[in-house]
Design a binder for these strands. Structure first.
Lengths: 232, 232
DNA sequence: ATTTTTACCGAACGAACGTTCGGTAAATCT
DNA sequence: AGATTTACCGAACGTTCGTTCGGTAAAAAT
């Protein structure tokens, strides 16, 4: 919840002595304006989730927020910025939580498990925004696109570091890039199939996926090639 | 290549004694009309790939095909049907190839490897259409959507069967559903990152991903919990 | 008390959208 | 040869799109 990011134009005039940090992404402090924007962003995330960015219209957003079309533009400059604010807040938040939790362990395997756990926790608790983040990752262009891509690269980099640590610690050989991207596939694909009434919760899924992935990566290649090949 | 599927309205009048099977998805036989439709579908797949289904316009398609806007509608009824034909042909073809290749082995592990290999072969050779298939899988509604969803379920079912076979053969215990969906995540996510100038080809990737996945699934859970937990 | 800023809204703008209509010239069938 | 079907096209239709303009009434600042 609480999609605040505000930077769109909280302070529009260069007046001196305004609030020091104009509420970046937290819910407690923040002007009434920031809180209203956060509400709108939550609604926007939901319609982007349901209809996709291109398929959703500002009139849809106007309807679900109960605000007029023109009134919406009081809080942001364009539809594209809506998507940017949602993606930025989502990425920033998941990464903050990750850093906090990673500080709790320095066992290489455990840290990879923390990464998976954190990702799935956040994914299943904020599935609308997370689908928007993963599904619309080529939608933003130019500056906004570059900014999101840079956060994404940072997130990827953290995971790659975890993986290289693991590889060195265990004295193994595998492609870090392929390992990370395979793992990302497993944990991001979730938005296409997870049904809370059928599937396990984040903790169980994180353990199961962690098992599959870590055994796959950790076990040596030798003694593995036992081609039974008992053809009919 | 060769996106033919034609069924849109190849035969519009109930005349007797027409071609027995009006060219379903192959390139050799097929009327000039079918071949022209296939060309258009290939262009359409490319623009859907680049801009997404909602983001791509019929005018874009008109421009890249060199055909007039009205002329396009000579070959199909609507934009939605374009997407349907692309998805149906892609799914059908990948599944035909899969069945052929699965007939070559009845070793449970080998068959899972064949599944992965086939998927990646097709994916990397037809990345435009495959991204359209995976990325726009909630776009089609009603009848067309249901038809595609049913083919998808069949494909999922094949993979699930392979997985259950493997589990029984090896006497293991794991969730087939989670295994299949994790595997799908790994192999479908590829469209978000694969760069032919950097990454390995389909054969190598299939082996590497197969290694990660199969080791992960095959290795027993025991002797695995060795929680080092050497905290700082 | 008065100015200024905030928080909206109704109505409209021009552009773009998917689709259709009425036509034409060539190919194909009878 | 004449009739019909095919393969298109220019122009438009009605709708929806993101965005903006000109306003208003309340709150905040001076």
């Amino acid at each position: 919840m609480a999609l605040v990011a505000a930077e769109s134009r909280s302070n529009s005039l260069p007046l001196a002595g305004r609030r020091p940090r104009p509420s970046f992404g937290d819910e407690k402090n923040g002007t009434a304006r920031d809180r209203r924007l956060a509400e709108v962003l939550e609604h926007a995330a939901r319609i982007f989730w349901q209809k996709g960015y291109e398929g959703a219209s500002m009139r849809d957003l106007s309807r679900v927020t109960g605000m007029s079309l023109a009134g919406l533009y009081h809080y942001f400059d364009s539809k594209e910025e809506l998507l940017y604010l949602i993606q930025k807040h989502t990425f920033t938040t998941i990464m903050e939580q990750l850093r906090e939790r990673l500080a709790e362990s320095d066992d290489a395997e455990q840290r990879v498990r923390i990464f998976i756990q954190n990702h799935l926790d956040y994914f299943l608790a904020n599935k609308e925004a997370m689908k928007v983040l993963t599904h619309e990752d080529e939608t933003l262009k130019n500056g906004r696109g570059a900014r999101i891509r840079s956060i994404k690269k940072e997130y990827y980099g953290i995971c790659l570091d975890l993986m290289e640590d693991l590889r060195k610690t265990m004295g193994l050989e595998f492609s870090g890039r392929l390992a990370v991207l395979s793992l990302f596939g497993m944990i991001n694909w979730i938005y296409t199939w997870h049904n809370p009434q059928v599937d396990a919760d984040a903790t169980v899924l994180a353990r199961q996926m962690g098992d599959i992935f870590l055994r796959g990566v950790l076990h040596p290649v030798k003694a593995q090639r036992r081609k039974a090949k008992r053809k009919s």
